[in-house]
Simulated scan of single mutants.
Amino acid sequence: MSVPNTTRNELRLLPWTTPDGKPCYLSADSHGSRLSLLADDIEAAQLDSGEQVLAGAKAVLADPKAGERAVRFALTRASESLGDVLRIAVSRGERIPECEL
């Protein structure tokens, strides 16, 4: 995932994409803006959802009688959640101030 040509910490990668799947960014000037707080809330919801999806996927994998449909469903939801978590990690990582050595 690449960031537009800006200085580090200038833009925040948002936890959603455009309708055609391109990343959305927010100027990080105001960390308390309404849109920034909305992004924080969505990230928290995505992380909570990821925990639930993980628990469900573990349950399906632990069930020797789980059929192909259940496994495919669990894997589909897990891959979606992993995508969300990776986007959050990139967004938060890009906002960590660089250390001066």
Rank of each mutant, 00 (worst) to 15 (best):
E68S: 10
R72W: 00
E68C: 02
L11Y: 08
P23S: 10
A59H: 12
L26R: 12
G50I: 01
G67F: 13
A57G: 04
G93A: 05
H31M: 04
A62I: 10
A44D: 10
G32E: 05
A70V: 02
E98A: 15
E98Y: 12
L35A: 06
E43T: 04
I42L: 14
A39T: 02
L54Q: 09
R12N: 04
R8E: 14
N5E: 15
A62G: 15
A66C: 07
N5K: 04
L37A: 10
Q46M: 04
E80Q: 14
D29L: 11
S27K: 12
D41P: 01
I96T: 13
L38Y: 05
A89G: 08
E43Q: 14
L75D: 05
E80P: 00
S36Y: 06
G50V: 00
E51L: 11
A70Y: 02
P19I: 01
S33R: 03
R34K: 06
L14V: 04
E98I: 10
D41Q: 15
I88F: 04
P4E: 06
R87Y: 08
A39R: 05
D84L: 07
T7P: 02
E94C: 12
R87G: 12
A78K: 01
N9I: 06
L54M: 06
E43W: 06
Y25N: 03
F73S: 12
S49V: 01
D48C: 00
A89C: 09
D84H: 15
D29A: 02
T7Q: 14
R95T: 02
V71G: 01
K22T: 13
W16L: 01
P15L: 09
S36C: 04
A39N: 02
L86G: 01
E10L: 08
D84E: 14
R34I: 03
T17S: 12
S36W: 10
L35F: 02
R77S: 11
R77V: 04
D40G: 06
P4H: 07
R92A: 08
L37T: 09
G83Y: 04
L11S: 11
V60S: 07
S81M: 08
S49C: 08
S33L: 01
I96L: 15
S2T: 14
A59W: 06
D84F: 11
D84S: 14
M1E: 13
Y25S: 05
E94I: 02
